[in-house]
Amino acid sequence: MGKTAQKLLVSMVGSLRDLLPILLVVLFFQFIVLEQSLPNIGRLLTGIVFVILGLTFFIHGLEQGLFPIGESMAHAFAKKGSIFWLVVFAFSLGFGTTVAEPALIAVAAEAANVAASGGMIEASEQAKSSYANGLRFTVAFSVGIAIVIGVIRILKGWPIQWIIIGGYLLVVIMTMFAPREIIGIAYDSGGVTTSTITVPLVTALGVGLASSIKGRNPMIDGFGLIAFASLTPIIFVMAYGMVI
């Protein structure tokens, strides 16, 4: 118990240091550039304390829970040797973590507004919500596919750059044909899919797989899953915009 407390204290100092830059930026712009006072100081200070506590707990839980389970599952799948189940797991992890992602829900709703104002769909609530849902499932599906491709790449040991560069080429080609309104959203959707819980899990899965398969280097083969997960949504969202 004492050991945990000590560890938490050390990492709390770290969290404080991580947040210091934001505080400095906010204070500088508020006082020096905008020349205004801080509203609601009590709430603000409580909020800062919460952020520091939260970051500390999160990092602690990360090392205790998320990393170990990700790696132990990767080892277990590698030992079991069933590619089928590994692929099913990879897809569910990608799809399941993305479909409920709040940032994605927000972006999809926004995209429906854009599509309605661009005349691509009707401006009714119903049309918009079906468009937004379609987009959300498209992105979640694409992330599932991405993790599957990434996992197969780790198993086969393909070099990542050819797949990613090929993906970029596809994005560039599709950009020329996709409706102009969808392009910004498509590019953004690559960035919003990967949440704070997904990233550590997926990273641990990749590194765990690469280190339990003979002949794979965890550094070269283990990373890269997130890269696929940020690339495929761009392609799928543009395709969605072209089809609908």
């Binding site: 934001i22 906010v26 508020q30 801080l38 509203p39 709430r43 603000l44 200070l45 409580t46 909020g47 800062i48 304390v49 919460f50 952020v51 520091i52 506590l53 939260g54 970051l55 500390t56 707990f57 999160f58 990092i59 602690h60 839980g61 990360l62 090392e63 205790q64 829970g65 998320l66 170990p68 389970i69 704070t196 819980i197």
Partner: peptide, 26 residues
């Protein structure tokens, strides 16, 4: 591992609430 998940949950909740109070409005 389960306790790790709980730490992550509690940590993320505090973190998000703190952001909502301190950082995002300003």
């Amino acid at each position: 591992i389960v306790s790790g998940f709980i730490w992550v949950l509690v940590g993320l909740s505090f973190f998000l609430l703190g952001l909502e109070w301190a950082l995002f409005p300003i």
